[in-house]
């Protein structure tokens, strides 16, 4: 998309949002200012933005692989959940056996395996059963959610209590270390950046990246040139699942320090929007993710200060994607 298209998209979204704000009786300028202040008002606010940005970027990286191949990996939510389950499992099972840092590393690996397993399951269903990945992904999301609820109400319940509140918090030594007063892990920021650059490198400058793109633009033609669809599909899903699993690790060990039913925070679905808005290109991803994170964190000001619902941020995010798609469609026709 060209600059002018972006301007059109942003103007359109702003005007619609402003109308919505008028309709609910909120002063639009104040609302925008509040969102902005809520995201940049202080380091602590911005740290919260980064705590949303990190999982969105990591998850989006994984989705770049699948989207480039033309796969709709809706199952990314479930892959995050399985990652969370994997890391919680390690922390629960080994907390008295190994040193904390080793446990965190193993938990990270297990989270990646969990996410990858769930993604590969969808891939397998596609390859062997010819089930479209949207349906298998959605189905697996429900299974993952049910699995988490079962674990929280069953084997991992708090002593004497059965509640939605999640598992007993992990011992402090097993919280992912965050410098005092920081509220965000610099290691995780670095990791997100490194993963983004690595993804870009793989997609742009390796043979495999090219193969994925070829498959994405024309599966039949790729087949003629002897490219195996199934093998690449398998690996693309594997990558997406691994990245999503890592997000599950982040959510459990950095943010919540326990497993909760809503552990994914819908970051999987949000990442799908990020990547779609980025038109499957890696470059805009960190910026769109930042914009989404700003909306996500800043919008908490709306109920707090203006007494309006914070789901407005969701409306803005959705509008962005819809108008962007609309503009692209219009361009293609003209």
């Amino acid at each position: 998309m060209k600059i002018t298209d972006w301007v059109i998209v942003i103007l359109a979204v702003f005007s619609v949002t402003t109308v919505v704000l008028f309709l609910v009786g909120a002063p639009p300028i104040d609302a925008y200012m509040l969102i902005f202040k809520g995201a940049f008002g202080s380091w602590r606010h911005f740290a919260q933005v980064l705590n949303v940005w990190i999982p969105l970027v990591i998850c989006s990286c994984g989705l770049l692989f699948t989207f480039n191949m033309g796969l709709w990996n809706i199952g990314v939510e479930g892959q995050i959940m399985l990652g969370a389950v994997g890391s919680t499992f390690v922390i629960k099972a080994c907390s008295s056996v190994f040193s904390p840092s080793l446990i965190l590393v193993v938990a990270g690996i297990c989270a990646i395996l969990g996410g990858a397993l769930w993604a590969v399951a969808a891939g397998f269903l596609k390859i062997r059963g010819n089930v479209h990945e949207i349906f298998s992904g959605l189905g697996l999301n429900f299974v993952a959610q049910a699995l988490i609820l079962w674990l929280i109400f069953g084997p991992w319940k708090r002593p004497g209590i059965a509640s939605m509140s999640g598992t007993e918090p992990f011992p402090k030594s097993l919280w992912f270390p965050v410098p005092a007063g920081w509220r965000v892990s610099p290691f995780m920021i670095g990791l997100a950046v490194v993963l983004l650059l690595a993804t870009a490198k793989v997609l742009q400058a390796t043979r495999w990246g090219l193969v994925l793109k070829a498959l994405g633009s024309n599966v039949k033609a790729a087949g003629v040139y002897g490219i195996s669809v199934n093998r690449n599909l398998f690996f693309a899903m594997l990558c997406a699942g691994a990245f999503a699993g890592l997000v599950g690790f982040f959510q459990t060990t950095v943010i919540y320090h326990r497993l909760i039913p809503a552990i994914s925070s819908n970051y999987g679905y949000l990442s799908l929007l990020v990547v779609m808005l980025a038109q499957y290109n890696w470059k805009p991803v960190p910026f769109i993710a930042l914009l989404f994170a700003i909306l996500q964190v800043g919008s908490i000001q709306l109920p707090l200060m203006l007494r309006i619902d914070s789901s407005l941020s969701g409306v803005i995010q959705g509008l962005l994607v819809l108008t962007a798609i609309g503009v692209m469609y219009a361009r293609r026709r003209s």
Binding site: R183, Y256, S264, Y267, I300
Partner: peptide, 12 residues
Amino acid sequence: RPGVTIPQLVDE
């Protein structure tokens, strides 16, 4: 409020 934590709101 997915993703919103108690410590975050207290900071706020």
